[in-house]
Amino acid sequence: MTAPTQIEFVLNGESRVAPAGATLAQLIADLGLRSELVAVECNGAVVRRAEHAQRRLAPGDVLELVTLVGGG
């Protein structure tokens, strides 16, 4: 059996696929987001920015990518 070439995960409530082995940093870059303006939660826990380059997506991960917007 060969390893899957793509993995499925959930991003901000939507199902997505990414190449197997992709890191959070690659995902953020692929989405065209400015990394300094994004915070990531994976399966309910914050993943610190310093870990984005090492942290690989795992099948079934539930990600929240958030930023700051206007508010009171």
């Binding site: 409530g13 958030v66 700051l68 917007v69």
Partner: peptide, 14 residues
């Protein structure tokens, strides 16, 4: 400010 999901559509000024 408020914390919200990023807009995955296209880049907007922050």
């Amino acid at each position: 400010v408020a914390v919200r999901r990023v807009n995955l559509g296209r880049g907007e000024p922050s």
